[in-house]
């Protein structure tokens, strides 16, 4: 049995791929790291620079305008609680990681989704890859991320973006495929080019579904950002990790509560945005 394993060593093959990438793709990963770092720094600055109370006020107004009064009230109380517990900076770090990962994730995921919706061949290749990405345990992403990008927040963002990508691709593909034939025919019959059809007909009609994908991506990103605390990504992940490793129930619980508050806030606001785009049509 071991002999067979030596001949076809799946893990070994993967290992040598990563080795090869670290040796030869250095410049490429450095470039990616630079991009991620730039965005992450920018987002972190935006959330760290103003006083906490102003950010809480902005979040509350946002929740009120986009979602309901109830969500706004929850946002106000929830974030005040985080501030009171003393995890404000960690929460903002986590939020910045999520936003950086989601922005990159959507920049990659939505175009792939569009491509998949236009070509059955592409979709047939992309689909099993997405299945693979979604079923592979989240921790496994951390290893190559560390090898290629060292420790810290940047591999955290990279691992998160890969982990949270599939729903954006899937739901963009689904949304565009579900656009009624007559609408596509109408666009063509009035002389729209392929890109006019995409921008003026398909994407707007698919928007509610795409927004549902964005919501899913954000939620997955949040869960992954916490896990990537293990590779030193910082933020609330670190707090929870500290609670586990030092068996401090109080710290672990407080970190957990902060994550839940952030998750509910992000979910309700993006869901309301997606509902709103659905109601329009």
């Amino acid at each position: 049995m071991n002999q067979i394993r030596d001949i076809v060593n799946i893990g070994g093959i993967f290992e040598s791929i990563i080795d090869w990438l670290t040796e030869n793709g250095d410049w490429f990963f450095d470039f990616i790291a630079l991009l991620v770092e730039g965005l992450l720094d920018g987002v972190t600055w935006v959330f760290s620079f103003p006083p906490a109370l102003i950010i809480i006020a902005i979040f509350t107004v946002l929740a009120w305008k986009v979602a309901t009064k109830g969500v706004a009230l929850f946002t106000l109380i929830g974030f005040l609680l985080i501030l009171y517990m003393g995890y404000w900076q960690q929460t903002m770090d986590t939020l910045s990681l999520v936003i950086a990962a989601v922005v990159f994730g959507l920049l990659v995921g939505i175009p792939i989704g569009i491509w998949a919706s236009k070509s059955d061949k592409a979709w047939n290749v992309i689909r099993p890859i997405l299945d693979f990405m979604q079923t592979l345990p989240a921790f496994v992403y951390l290893i190559p991320a560390v090898l290629l990008f060292k420790l810290g927040p940047i591999p955290g963002v990279i691992a998160t973006l890969i982990f949270s990508l599939p729903p954006a691709v899937r739901l963009t593909n689904l949304g565009i495929r579900q656009v009624p034939t007559e609408i596509k025919e109408a666009a063509r019959a009035f002389g729209a080019t392929s890109s006019q059809m995409l921008v003026k007909a398909e994407l707007p009609v698919a928007l509610p579904t795409i927004m549902a994908g964005v919501n899913q991506t954000i939620m997955l990103a949040l869960s992954m950002v916490v896990i990537s605390g293990m590779i030193g990504a910082g933020g609330l992940g670190n707090v929870v990790l500290k609670g586990i490793t030092q068996l401090k129930i109080d710290i672990g619980f407080e970190g957990g509560v902060a994550i839940v508050i952030l998750a509910i806030f992000l979910d309700r606001v993006t869901q309301a945005l997606s509902d709103r785009s659905g109601r329009q049509s």
Binding site: E182, I183, A189, G191
Partner: peptide
Amino acid sequence: RRYKMSMVFQHFGLLPH
């Protein structure tokens, strides 16, 4: 298609947004 002939559809084919 733009200038010579246009089409009306059974289920209207309007853009909902």
